[in-house]
Simulated assay, not measured.
Amino acid sequence: MTMQSLRNVLRTQLVDRDAGWSIGSFGAIGEFHQRPDDRIAVDRADNLCRATEKGGIRLEPEALSETVAVAFETLSPRAERWGHGLALCLPADKAAVPSREVLTELGPDDEALRPEDRGAVLFDMGLAQPQIEFCIRTADPELLGVLRARAGRSLMEPGNPVMGTILSSHPHRVVRSRLGRVEVFQKIGGPDTGGISPDGPHTHVLPKLLRSGRTHSANTPIPDGLVPCAMLHPPSAVMGARGEDIPFDLQRFETFQVLLRLFGRTSYVAAKDRVLTALEEGAEDALQEPATRLERTGLRIALRQQARQAALHGKRNLSMRIDRLRRRFDHLTEEPDAVEDERPGHESEGEASRAAAGPAP
């Protein structure tokens, strides 16, 4: 897969309002989602940049030459679902960014997506993440005064009032990596938003997860030595934009399977192919439990996907055969740590409630 081919994939997905994007680490993330009625403020898809009045994303085209794309699928705790994504990775040394542990003024944001934001001032929040800088941006004189008075201190230290001021002021959030940036203009989820994240672009900071020091979820199968610096979340075949159930969408399913064959882990794709071959040849009794967690996930997800397709086409006998295999292999209790939120890049409600240590952007 050439750099131009990857760029074409990203450009096509960028103009699809059902696709989502994120840049973040394990516990701090900025997400960009579009809705049908969102007004487009910046539309430079050829340069991998798009923004609405709620937020935006820009990927760095010149960085794609060093990017390793990894397509993956994840298990859901809901038996008829699965998640998927395309991680844009860099080698760990090339992914590294300045790891600041205190609130730090960075100066005017000359790289802002919208011209009107380029005079506002960026502050790194000091989350000390390996591959992202999680920043806030403001031109408000009162907030600037508060931030500058407390610069050089950790936002997490006892008695520091800055986090509360940030939560009530709702500055822009800017999450940067070596591959680009996500900007969020909407309010921070909290008391002013009814205790939920606003629909569309939003951010999460979960201190408990940050303390793990991980760059990404253990359930996202990134090869050793690589770090995800941006994520594409193509439209799901089984979920809508807000995580609701939808009728199985065969076109969406097949579109992602093309990406999976181009960018997926070879052993994972092979595990899924063994399931398809066994069903086609009537040899499913010969299927064996794979040796690795990655391949076991592939088997289980393949069975879920084949079950949805069999039901769509009314193939009752095939559905019964798949059900027998699922009783053998697709047990949610088998590997509890392998069952994660079906929307990669989105912090699940359960994860957020477990990890929250007070409000944060």
Score class of each variant (00 low, 15 high):
G180A: 11
V42T: 10
A230L: 00
L232Y: 07
T203W: 04
V275E: 10
P201E: 07
E244P: 03
D110E: 12
F32P: 10
R316E: 15
E289W: 14
R118F: 08
A302T: 12
E157K: 06
G243L: 02
V15N: 15
Q309W: 06
V42I: 13
M125W: 05
A338I: 05
E295A: 14
E53D: 13
A71E: 02
S25R: 03
S5L: 08
H202G: 05
P191T: 11
F26R: 08
S212N: 09
L250F: 07
G24S: 06
S154K: 06
E280M: 12
R176Y: 05
I57P: 13
F185C: 02
L75H: 11
A128F: 10
V70P: 04
Q131I: 01
L294W: 03
I188F: 01
Q4L: 11
E66C: 05
R39M: 12
L147R: 01
V238P: 02
P141I: 00
R181N: 06
A112F: 03
E133Q: 13
H233G: 03
A28P: 13
H331T: 05
L325D: 07
T165L: 12
G190H: 11
N160W: 06
G56F: 08
T2Q: 10
S236Y: 02
A278N: 15
G126S: 03
D38Y: 09
R327K: 14
A87L: 02
